[in-house]
Write a protein that binds this DNA or RNA. Structure first.
Lengths: 206, 206, 206, 206
DNA sequence: GATGAATGAGCATTCATTCAT
DNA sequence: CATGAATGAATGCTCATTCAT
């Protein structure tokens, strides 16, 4: 007669929010759809109105994490000009995200594990690969920009630095999770001080 | 009086070997004890003669990975003298392990995921914490040695560098898993070139 | 909004009914949840919507048997006045229950066995102890009432008679199970004739 | 060459002794052959040199309990002359056995439960039936002897009394197990005082 | 004779998903 | 639209029994 009008988008988001919490606490396999529905305050069956499967729901959670991170980075980078500044801003945003959302960081870990095992989780490994490629490329661009502008040495392996920086960022997430007493932002800065010094052109020749 | 004589130690190791393969392919939850037993060519019940539970078996797999890595590193570091040499050797061993055992690298990923979620897997998170602490300390020692000998600058944050290097190593494992076309060893070297340059004392003042 | 409406109480009872049958035929350990579900005409998993575990289900079966017996006794005793009448009524009800529900009498036997072994089935032994204490007390009251009214001798050990009567009742259940040709009700009556005669005050002195 | 010479009879008995303990503590299903072998201080496989199956072993335990009881009763009754004396002696022996072997009384309980459920335990129910029939007959004989000698009334239902006495004996075993604080021997005596009084011929007519 | 390593049938329990209401 | 009762496939684990030594 009069189908209830529901803001599907909104409800979907609320569902993801609840799911992100449960998945973070219990892991993918350890999470039951029932607990998610309880946490979201809806019926168990209702989840399936919004997501086709548990995996779909989990993917949406991961997607939320990724998009959120990318948005924060994009926002912050908008106002940056220098290459070093960009690099340091990217690092800062990442550490801020890790610190702020540390409770949800088990989600990317789960995704890593899922993507690395089983051939059926194609979708996760593809997503990850794309994401990493995009991150790497962004970093590479910053570095190349710096080379062009003379900020950075020309004889360094830009791809290598980019890959290793992305690696270090991921690793920082790990370390933070396993030892929450670590203050990553200052460590990240100190580390970048040294690395950037190594990337600067030789002054002796100036 | 004359019971069947079996080398339990050896059989246990063979079992771990089979299990490492299955866990790597399917993940912890995705692996059934039956499949492990099939792969090992023994009966399902026999596994329980050697391991008390699925988790015990998995822990043994992780333990194998850890010990193997540590052994390789210890072996290689025995012959090193200089600080930079040690650092580079550690990095080389790690990349070699990652490349050589790339198929089994999902195991540490699983452990990361398990340790980050759920409060029950105490044993995994404790092991991880200890392992990382030990790695960090080793690197710190190398760096401090280098500072003492004048190889490295005295004004750098040794702890920060150590944490970030460990992070980078972990991240490298991740990147390798998700994009097997990456040649990490050369990247690792190029990266260390830059980083070490940043750690070297200022020559201008010489 | 319009979930399936089910009378959970009723379904629970039906489930108990089916379970009582299977447990009686096969014993606790010999009964598989699958067989119960088959007998009840529902899915295996559905049982767990109503009972947390096999033991819970079995306890409900025992509870059903106890409550049913107690109810019948209470109902019949309501209309009794004299002490001897009460005693004979209790005996009659018990024999009627045993005869009527002889097929389900293996259930109390199982409970006896469970309660006597293992320290875990606390719940069963506690229940049994309480039940027996209550039975004994009821009988004792009847006897004391009879003593007060002069129906029964004052120099008999009321507690002893009560305990032994309860014992005899239990034993009757056993004998009935193992030899279904026994007609317990007439035997019970003849026995009570003799016992009651022994409990009557000495007439010589009258 | 020289097969070890073993007193099979003796070892069998030791095995039964160990098994009686474990079965009493854990019940039939709760007992593992391994634990029995451990308790007996022999290898798991060795049990099968003496007993064809777990059920065989358990049956031997029950048999031990039965035979032991019967022996004690036979021994004690040898010296009895009067009917009442015999009756009281039988009761005394039974209570003594129950008190002395209370820790092993779960075994008959288990047998009751096994015999009452499942059609496969033919052997247990047959044994029980025979044993009870024999007990009943013995008691009946005592009572009839008493009638013949004028000790007991002629108008009582001997079969009924016999059945109910056997019942009461069984019940006493139960009550003792569930409430170990009960002092059955005095209760048994007080009870027999009353019952025997009821069985005595009417003195008024004397 | 004695052993204990190996086995695999058997079972309680979980949980993603469906669908009648 | 929303629900939660119902389902049954899937799985970790146990243990009586066998048999090579």
């Amino acid at each position: 007669m009069c189908p209830k009008i529901v803001d599907k988008k909104l409800k979907r988001q609320q569902l993801v929010k609840a799911a992100v919490g449960v998945f973070s606490e219990r892991g993918f396999k350890g999470t039951s759809m029932e607990e998610v529905s309880l946490r979201a305050g809806i019926g168990k069956g209702t989840i399936y109105e919004y997501f086709g499967s548990k995996e779909d729901l989990f993917y949406a959670c991961f997607d939320w994490f990724m998009k959120m991170t990318i948005d924060q980075a994009a926002e912050a980078l908008k106002e940056c000009t220098g290459s070093e500044e960009k690099l340091r801003t990217a690092a800062r945003v990442w550490t801020e995200v890790v610190i702020r959302y540390i409770d949800f960081c088990p989600i990317p870990l789960e995704v890593w594990a899922m993507a690395s095992t089983g051939s059926d989780n194609e979708r996760f490994s593809t997503s990850l690969k794309e994401m990493y490629a995009s991150f790497r490329t962004s970093i590479e661009e910053m570095l190349r920009e710096g080379q062009a502008s003379g900020e950075f040495r020309r004889d360094m392996d830009v791809t290598a630095i980019a890959i290793m920086l992305v690696s270090a960022f991921d690793g920082v997430l790990l370390q933070s999770l396993f030892d929450r007493s670590i203050h990553i932002s200052s460590y990240m800065n100190s580390f970048l001080d040294v690395l950037v010094r190594g990337m600067k052109p030789d002054l002796r020749k100036g």
